[in-house]
């Protein structure tokens, strides 16, 4: 029997923060197509993770667990994922469109000889399932239909409502026997580079982001932004202009040429709002802009705006929010 398969990667027993969003999306597709939602879980030290997926709507879980999957290695993860998904009899396979899913989704689709749609932000279920995603750097949207099963679809992080916990964590868990050969791992990490990245909040998962652009003028001025970020427990980001100027590292860049983010609150400071930047914040729930130019395109996207010199606005905003939040 064909299934909707939510494919989840859990190296070192860690579920991605958006795993239940995948099950949320999966449950809507499964309901529309009247097929079961199952999960395929690939990783190491899985422990109670299969039960967590059952508790969030999967009716069965297929697992591949192997010590070689302790860290993400694309060749081995692809082999394991292919086996797990095949065992789960997919009509549709869903992956998160994070770095790992974006890399493996199209490769998996090619192996399964299915149809691939990437970076989906909306699932249309009326009259058959369709997938919608931004194209042309966010300037347009496109709707796709998959003509060849299985559909392999990567879902943008934080674009979907997560599946609620249902309490009942009962259901079959099927370990899938896969023999992984360490020799199959061609791509090897030889060095991890630590950088002076902002500690803590990962932008893709951040609920609140404070972001600075060319309007900040110089690197030191990001300090005022950091003070606001600290008060809000927010992630720190930047526009391409600020990164190109060398003020902040590339890891902070949001936009078509950087990270795609979807926080509940995005505060853009001194960012004009070039379309390639707006493409990166498509899924943000509330956008606040502070810019001295009232004509800046960011105000066409923002819900709240202040037209003024950010350097006078920001310290007072930080202080006031600190008081209001009782910090």
């Amino acid at each position: 029997m064909p299934n909707v398969v939510a494919l989840v990667f859990a190296p070192a027993g860690q579920l991605p923060a958006s795993a239940f969003e995948l099950l949320g999306a999966g449950s809507r597709i499964a309901a529309a197509e009247n097929v079961p939602l199952v999960a395929a879980l690939v990783g190491s030290s899985l422990n109670d993770l299969p039960k967590q997926l059952l508790a969030h709507g999967a009716v069965e879980v297929y697992t591949v667990e192997d010590g070689l999957l302790e860290t993400f290695q694309p060749d081995l993860y692809l082999l394991a994922a292919e086996q797990a998904v095949q065992a789960a009899q997919p009509q549709t396979v869903l992956l998160l469109h994070d770095g790992v899913g974006a890399e493996l989704g199209p490769r998996l689709g090619a192996r399964l000889k299915g149809g691939v749609v990437t970076d989906v932000i909306e699932i249309v279920t009326e009259g058959g399932v369709r997938y919608r995603r931004p194209v042309y750097g966010g300037k347009a949207m496109a709707t796709y239909a998959v003509r060849r099963s299985p559909a392999v679809v990567t879902i943008r992080v934080r674009s979907q409502e997560p599946a609620p916990e249902q309490g009942n964590a009962e259901g079959p868990i099927h370990p899938v026997a896969v023999t992984l050969d360490p020799q199959a791992a061609k791509v090897k990490v030889v060095e991890r580079i630590e950088e002076e990245e902002q500690e803590g909040v990962k932008l893709e998962d951040a609920r609140v982001i404070v972001s600075g652009g060319r309007g900040l003028g110089k690197a030191e001025n990001f300090q005022a932004l950091k003070e606001l970020a600290d008060v809000l427990g927010a992630g720190m980001a930047a526009s391409r202009a600020a990164v190109d100027a060398g003020w902040v590292p590339y890891a902070m860049q949001v936009g078509q040429t950087g990270k795609m983010v979807a926080p509940d609150l995005y505060i853009a400071v001194g960012i004009s709002g070039a379309s390639q930047h707006l493409a990166g914040i498509t899924g943000s729930k509330h956008v606040v802009a502070i810019n001295k130019d009232s004509e800046a395109p960011i105000f066409k996207r923002a819900e709240l705006g202040v037209v003024d010199d950010y350097s006078k606005v920001l310290p007072v905003l930080t202080q006031k929010l600190k008081e209001l939040l009782g910090k």
């Binding site: 609920r207 609150l265 509330h286 819900e303 709240l304 037209v307 606005v313 007072v316 905003l317 929010l321």
Partner: peptide, 28 residues
């Protein structure tokens, strides 16, 4: 999209009003 531009006599006044408006979004 309809943006609400926060008005005020001074940047400080705008900042205070903005803080209230951000809180009213109920996401913090």
């Amino acid at each position: 999209n309809q943006v609400t531009i926060i008005e005020g006599e001074t940047p400080e006044e705008k900042a205070e009003k903005l803080a209230q408006a951000i809180l009213a979004l109920k996401v913090l």
